[in-house]
Amino acid sequence: MTDDAQTTRLRRTLLIGAVGLTAVALAACSSSTGGGSGSGDGAPGAITTLDVIAPADPGGGWDQTARAVSAALTGDDLVDSAPVTNIGGAGGTVGLASLATETDSTTLMVTGSVMVGAVETNASENRIEDMTPIARLTEEPLVIVVPASSEFESVQDVVDAIEEDGPQVTVTGGSAGGIDHILAGQLLIEGGMDSADVPTSLNYIANSGGGEALTMLLGGTAMVGISGVGEFAESVQSGDLRALAVSSEEPAIALPDVPTLQDEGIDLAITNWRGLLAPGGISDEERQALVDVVTEMHGSSAWTEAVETNGWTDAFLTGDELQTFLEEDIARTQETLQTIGLTS
């Protein structure tokens, strides 16, 4: 064999070896990234992107929750991105209808007490029970507020005025049949009004987001407001609104000097819970992957800070306990709505 032939053969052998090593390296790289579905740390099958739906317009509690979830997920590098989409309307049931058509197992939607009531009052074809519950995250007291110049000095003043003047007293809050509306009705009953008179006496103006209710109160087109503490706290602290009472058994963290309804002699305590749903029909493995990443988020410093900043109360729940809680809350809401005349 000539020197030229030996050289050619050697080059061919080295080339084949290099191709083989490249193939091995590419296979290893593909395996370590999970074929494109892995997380930033290379964990196979981990979630890289989560789409978060806020089923309300910007500015309200659901929007705040959705953006806090997004920030905590990305801030602690649990996912690469978590864009938020607002789909407002009908107490969250428009967003619920959108989620019902979703097939992507990496979509989460904020839910809560408001949606439980809105499903009933809107006779929604899509129900929370048809979706996949992932976690209950927080609960928050509600606060009853009036403009700073209001003549009402107490919650009982509001009840007495509605009993005397009926629809002339305008009350605004979240969606019809939601937790704000339920509190308004129960407030009248516990304040002494006959439940049969509530539907004709209570002039409740529903809004898609907390920002609209605030505009109505500051603009003088509503006399009383009910919403989560987090939505009105800043305006109370600035002096634009005056808080009459909070709905929890204990004072609210964000408004520690505001009395509870029980302090005011009204035996009533209601809190607004919020959580996360995924589309119905996803697999057990997909559901568990979502539960796992949300559980990690719940333990993150970013989420802890968000809960404290917004004055929420941690109420984390998953699994069978969450399922039981949902069933009981839905049944209790159905009964309450019938009692105060919002549903038949």
Rank of each mutant, 00 (worst) to 15 (best):
G191T: 00
A331L: 09
T7D: 12
V291D: 03
E250N: 15
E125R: 08
P147M: 02
V229Y: 05
T313P: 09
S248K: 04
M1L: 13
L78E: 04
E139P: 07
R242S: 10
T271I: 04
E231W: 08
L50E: 03
T48P: 09
N122S: 10
S105A: 15
G92H: 02
P83M: 12
L326P: 06
L26P: 01
G88S: 15
T138H: 01
D63V: 07
S124V: 01
I134A: 05
V19K: 00
L342D: 01
T107Q: 02
T343P: 04
T343M: 01
P199R: 04
L277K: 03
A269Y: 00
E190H: 02
G166L: 05
A118D: 07
I53C: 02
T65F: 14
T7S: 14
D240V: 01
G299D: 12
P133V: 07
A222D: 00
V114W: 06
I182S: 01
A66V: 14
P256E: 05
G341Q: 10
V52G: 03
A66L: 13
I330E: 07
G230C: 13
G239T: 13
N207S: 10
F316T: 08
T85D: 02
G230E: 12
V169S: 06
S149M: 02
G341Y: 14
G280K: 05
S247Q: 12
E164C: 08
V198D: 06
A135L: 03
S283I: 01
A54I: 09
G228L: 03
E139D: 15
R11L: 14
Q6M: 09
G92D: 02
E153M: 03
G89I: 10
A100F: 08
T271V: 10
I134S: 02
T271K: 14
E327D: 14
V145N: 00
I189Y: 06
V159M: 09
N126A: 15
L187I: 06
Q237V: 04
P83F: 03
A66K: 10
I253A: 15
A196C: 05
L50W: 10
P83K: 11
D3P: 14
G185S: 06
A5N: 11
L21F: 08
L261W: 11
S150L: 06
G89E: 04
E129R: 04
N207T: 06
A213D: 07
S105G: 04
L202C: 11
S113D: 09
A331V: 12
S201R: 15
G95V: 05
L326I: 10
T85W: 07
G20K: 08
S37V: 10
A90V: 08
G281H: 13
G209I: 06
A176L: 13
G112F: 04
D57M: 08
L15T: 13
D51F: 09
A233F: 02
G178Y: 03
T170A: 10
P147H: 02
D180H: 12
L108D: 13
G185V: 03
S227T: 00
A252F: 15
A90N: 15
A66S: 11
T271P: 07
A176D: 05
G265F: 03
A176F: 10
G192D: 01
G61S: 14
T172K: 00
E102K: 09
E264H: 01
R127K: 14
I270N: 03
L15C: 12
T200R: 14
G191I: 02
L50C: 05
T33Y: 04
G192L: 00
T74S: 08
